[in-house]
Amino acid sequence: MSNSEAILKIKDLKVYFDTDAGVVKSVDGVDLEIKKGTTLGLVGESGCGKSVTCLSIPRLIESPPGRIAGGEIIYKGKNLLELSEKDMQGIRGNDISMIFQEPMTSLNPVFTIGDQIQEVIMLHQHKTSAEARELTLRILKKVGIPSPEIRIDDYPHQMSGGMKQRVIIAMALSCSPDLLIADEPTTALDVTIQVQILDLMRSLQDELGMSILLVTHDLGVVASMASHVAIMYASKIVEYGPVEQIFSNPGHPYTLGLFTSIPVVGRGKRDLYVIPGNVPDPLAFPRGCKFWPRCVFAEDICRSQEPFLENIGEGHTAACHFRGKIDKHLWKEKTNTGSFLNISR
């Protein structure tokens, strides 16, 4: 598995926003890798920089105030940050598709869904409008819209949330992308609709072989969808690896904290672990490791030196000065919540 080819490699990416209050370092040295045909789950709390990371891949960061301040985004061997705007447009339409976080705002209320999908198709592919309509019907059917011949002329408000999300997926798939970036695609949906959409994404992936970057704050969604996970905290990736590794043997204190702070069915009613303090203000990140003010293991070195992602296992990296030494056993001793980690049998 480890030597399968990466479709996307992000190296030391920095995305900054110049605001009146100062420079917001929304993404500050992110490293990521997505292997071909697999799903990478990107997990982290609100404001940690997940959406900005996603938007920077197809270069959709609004500038100003935003700017890519450094790093590389290597897609199929090419650094996207060095492409001309024209070449980039070609990639956006044909190679990389994105599903945005606010599903209800990504459809235009004044056009029928059919018109909107056709427009995307005609913008990026040389098709007549009759051909585009034909293709639209096929895609709507593929994403499980019942009676697409009728629904194609619906306006967004005539559809339920789950239906709209299917339409958005249809639109993203209309160009058969090789990489789909899905930013919280099911967060606004009910659980029984969420499984429908996740199942749809999984089967389309099997069929089309696309790679997926899936942003979510739900570790359960990651478990059911992803082969790899990246845990993001305060504008950086703090742990990365195969999902089995991260779930059975988390190695970063933040990941350990996340796993022990969520209620898990069957764990009983004892208190949940609470990661002390709050997420730091991106205008005033702490020096050294950004997690130290909340970390139970922090020592002097953490307050002065920033740790970088380094190996702690096969394809498994963590950014912590004590990487490899901290594990669930030590966590249990330190916080008395280690038994919470027996989630994966």
Binding site: T192, Q196, D199, G220
Partner: peptide, 19 residues
């Protein structure tokens, strides 16, 4: 449908039709 953290339980979810 409740996304489980248990990787070992790779169960096939019951997918309800429609809305």
């Amino acid at each position: 449908a409740n996304p489980s953290l248990d990787l070992a339980a790779k169960r096939k979810p019951i997918i309800l039709k429609g809305d």
